[in-house]
Simulated assay, not measured.
Amino acid sequence: MRYAIKENKKVEPQFSGERAFCPICKNKVVGKIYSIRINHWAHLVKSESDCDSWYEPITEWHLNWQNLFPEENREVTITENNISHRADILLNNELVIEFQNSPIKIREVERRETFYNKNNRKLIWVLNGKSLAESVIVEKENVISDILVSISIPKSFPLVKNYSSRRILKHKLIGFLNADKKRSEIKENILTFKYTKEEFEIEHIKDQYKNHIIAIYKDLYGEIELNEFKKLIKIEDHLIEETFIKPRLKRLTWRAFIDKMESPVFIDNLKGLEEDELYYLSENKIISKEKFIKKALTYV
């Protein structure tokens, strides 16, 4: 273990032979200081080692991750029904972060998720890809979404009783057209969406939306001032040259227990990732470690 209790304080060992107490079983522990291995506390009586059945050796990778969080949030003891375990990180919002460096059994995954996801706590996993997914590669595909279409209709139309621009743009026919478009959004009397260049013919899209809007208007309001309404439909398109990365996980071999993790899974040190990137397995996304840490630290 990394921390023990000495004079009512949470401490790391400062010299070999130093004495303190285990936060879980309250028995005596002794400091172990090494020039190569990771410094840690060990139970003085070997039969008591280790009182946390989920104990795993501390690695440099564990330390580097834990050190990104305040000391008070590292290696925190959680007790449920007289059973105690040390969470790698427990944040003030009850978010538990477990840094997993070595393989574990599927049953063990289930036990940990059941234990840590109790009493408003939420667990997320961070896995070391270098030791758990050494043959896995993240391939990045650049996807360009570079056409923004904006469609506006009259916000108000006094010539027509009970006119509603939102009612027209929220109609199921418009929803059907939006189904294969990206990031469609309606704000008052304006509909916007994006699509990949060359995916659709822009003039066809403009005609399609205009004809549907006119058909919806006729269905709702008949022929009243229809020609005037047609003149006020505005459709514009813009090049936006937006590039984003779509990851693809290439698995030559894969550890079965990872697929059994129901809590969110982030993988560090995967081939194909930059040093400052994590692969968010649960959402098939690449995120920056800085963003991950910053979001977590807002809860500390």
Rank of each mutant, 00 (worst) to 15 (best):
N8K: 13
G17F: 01
E18P: 03
R19D: 01
P23T: 03
I24G: 02
N27W: 02
N27I: 06
N27M: 07
K28M: 08
V30I: 15
Y34R: 06
Y34N: 13
I38Q: 11
I38W: 00
W41H: 00
E48Y: 15
D50G: 06
D50F: 13
S53K: 15
E56Y: 09
T59Y: 07
T59Q: 05
E60A: 05
L63R: 12
N64H: 05
N67I: 04
P70D: 11
N73F: 09
V76Y: 02
V76G: 04
T79R: 13
E80W: 07
N81H: 10
S84I: 14
R86L: 14
L91R: 13
N92S: 14
L95V: 15
V96N: 08
N101M: 01
R107Y: 03
E110F: 10
R111F: 04
R111V: 12
N119H: 13
R121Y: 08
N128T: 06
K130Y: 08
K130R: 12
S131Y: 02
E134D: 11
V136S: 10
I137M: 07
K140L: 02
K140Y: 03
E141Q: 05
N142C: 01
D146C: 08
L148M: 14
S152E: 14
I153R: 09
S156F: 07
P158A: 05
P158E: 11
N162R: 15
N162L: 12
I168V: 15
L169W: 13
H171D: 15
K172L: 06
L173K: 15
N178Y: 07
E188L: 14
N189T: 07
K194F: 11
K197I: 09
E198M: 10
E198N: 15
E201R: 14
I202K: 13
E203G: 02
Y209A: 10
L220P: 00
L220N: 12
G222F: 14
E223R: 12
I224Y: 08
E228H: 10
F229W: 11
K234N: 10
D237G: 00
H238N: 11
L239P: 02
E242Y: 07
F244I: 10
P247N: 05
L249S: 09
K250M: 11
L252V: 14
T253P: 00
W254N: 06
F257H: 04
F257T: 04
I258L: 08
M261C: 12
E262W: 02
P264W: 01
V265G: 02
I267W: 06
L270P: 05
K271Q: 08
G272Y: 03
S282Q: 03
N284W: 06
I286C: 01
I287W: 05
K289G: 01
E290P: 00
F292L: 02
I293F: 08
I293T: 06
L297D: 04
T298Y: 07
